[in-house]
Amino acid sequence: MGVKERLREYIKTLDISEREFCRQIGVSTSYVNSIRQSIQPDKMKAIGEKFPELNPMWLLTGEGEMLQGNNINKVSGSHNTAVAGNGNSVTTNDIAGLIELQKGYQEMIKEKDSQIARLISVIEKLSEK
Rank of each mutant, 00 (worst) to 15 (best):
T91Y: 07
S76G: 03
N73H: 13
G77K: 01
V83F: 09
G85T: 02
A82Q: 13
I95R: 14
G77D: 00
H79L: 09
I99V: 06
L98R: 05
G77Y: 01
L101M: 14
G69E: 06
Q102W: 06
S78E: 14
E100R: 11
A96M: 13
N86G: 01
T81E: 14
L98E: 00
K74R: 03
G87M: 00
G85N: 04
T91P: 09
I95E: 04
K103F: 01
G77V: 03
T91D: 10
N73F: 15
W58F: 12
E107G: 02
Q106K: 01
N80Q: 14
K103Y: 07
K74G: 02
S89H: 14
H79E: 14
D94C: 10
M108Q: 13
L59F: 10
A84M: 04
N73A: 09
N71L: 05
W58A: 00
T92W: 15
V75H: 06
L60D: 10
V83C: 01
G77C: 00
L101T: 09
Q68E: 04
E100L: 13
G77P: 01
N71A: 01
N86L: 03
G85V: 04
L98G: 04
I72S: 04
L98M: 15
N71Y: 05
N88A: 10
Q68H: 07
K103T: 01
G62D: 12
L98F: 08
I99L: 06
Q102V: 05
M66C: 09
N86I: 08
L60Q: 12
T92G: 11
E65N: 00
E65K: 09
N88T: 07
S78T: 13
N71M: 02
I72G: 08
V90D: 00
G69F: 01
N71F: 01
K74V: 03
N73C: 08
H79V: 05
E107Y: 02
N86Q: 05
G87E: 00
L101N: 07
A84G: 11
G64Y: 11
A84R: 11
S89D: 13
N93H: 14
N88G: 03
E107D: 09
G104Q: 12
D94L: 03
Q68C: 00
V75R: 11
G104T: 11
L67N: 13
L67K: 15
G69W: 07
G87T: 06
A82N: 08
D94N: 15
G77I: 00
Q102Y: 01
G97F: 13
T91G: 03
L98A: 04
T61A: 05
G62P: 10
K74P: 02
Y105L: 13
K74W: 15
L101P: 02
N70E: 15
V75M: 07
Q106T: 04
I99F: 05
M66S: 02
T81L: 10
E100F: 13
G69S: 03
N86H: 10
D94E: 08
I99A: 09
A96E: 15
E100V: 03
E63S: 08
N93W: 14
G104P: 05
L67T: 14
E107I: 07
S76C: 05
N73P: 02
N70G: 15
G85H: 02
I72D: 04
V75N: 02
V75W: 05
L59I: 08
T61W: 15
V83L: 12
N93S: 11
